[in-house]
């Protein structure tokens, strides 16, 4: 049964490669960053501090908060990239992450080769991979450009491809950093449909976003982070506030 459980989760970034003292002076004046020195006198940034939450199957959670509040760090922690220094984290379920859709794309390879590469990243067999190549190739609508190196693609074309590759997953737990938008008007409609399918198929969605409208549209619950701590957690309306009329109309129009 897919669920996410965090108890007193702490993530700290040690700052190794910078002159600690001058950096301290520079950074302490800024808000949002949390610096302290640890036992061995290193400067560490507390990216997440004592997070506790439980996300159950069927929940759609929006992570909201200012830049540097810890949203992406939390997503990466949930994805298993960062290991917590304190606390407990349990993520049960197959994870699909759309944290950076273009990660792992090789510019010198053709579109087809990149799809195959991504299949290898996911550990698919050769047969499964072949199937995916056809499927993703068709979805991206790149046609003959699929056999041309990505380096020669227009910006729109590479967005189409990376979107198609990134959304080939069928995860139980979907981690997403900002709602993806892709390509020209035609493709955007198609992309939107795909993403909606992906989100509704997933058992759990965790979406970091700055757009309150996106949060309200897609999520049932919201967690607001501030300086690495949870300051609010509850039904999306309570946490992000209610939509203003013009904004709501804008969503409808879209």
């Amino acid at each position: 049964m897919a669920h996410i459980l965090a108890e007193g989760l702490d993530i700290e970034f040690p700052l190794y490669h910078v002159g600690a003292r001058s950096l301290k002076k520079r950074l302490l004046s800024r808000t949002g960053l949390r610096l302290r020195t640890d036992q061995s006198n290193r400067v560490v940034v507390s990216a997440l501090r004592g997070l506790s939450f439980h996300i159950e199957r069927g929940e759609r959670v929006a992570l909201v908060g200012h830049n540097g509040a810890g949203k992406t760090t939390l997503l990466r922690t949930l994805a298993g990239i960062y290991e917590p220094v304190a606390g407990r984290l349990e993520v049960d379920g197959q994870i699909g992450s759309l944290i950076d859709p273009s990660a792992g794309i090789d510019m010198d390879s053709t579109g087809r080769e990149n799809i195959q590469l991504r299949c290898l990243f996911r550990g698919l067999s050769a047969a499964e991979s072949q199937e995916k190549v056809e499927e993703i190739g068709a979805f991206s609508g790149l046609g003959t450009f699929l056999d041309v190196p990505i380096r020669t693609y227009s910006a729109g074309m590479s967005v189409r491809l990376s979107f198609a590759i990134a959304t080939m997953i069928e995860p139980q737990i979907l981690l997403m950093d900002e709602w993806l938008a892709a390509g020209d008007a035609d493709f955007q409609k198609q992309a939107q449909g795909r993403l909606e399918q992906l989100v509704t198929d997933a058992d759990i969605l965790v979406l970091a976003t700055h757009s309150m409208d996106t949060a309200r549209t897609w999520c049932s619950r919201a967690i607001r982070l501030e300086s690495g701590r949870i300051v609010a957690d509850g039904p999306v309306e309570d946490v992000v506030g209610k939509a203003e009329e013009p904004a709501a109309q804008a969503i409808k129009a879209a």
């Binding site: 949930l78 994805a79 298993g80 290991e83 917590p84 606390g87 407990r88 984290l89 349990e90 993520v91 049960d92 379920g93 197959q94 994870i95 699909g96 990243f121 996911r122 550990g123 698919l124 499964e128 997953i169 069928e170 995860p171």
Partner: peptide, 11 residues
């Protein structure tokens, strides 16, 4: 048809 590198996370 989905196998992720780290399917489950437990820390």
């Amino acid at each position: 048809v989905f196998h992720d590198a780290v399917p489950r996370v437990f820390h």
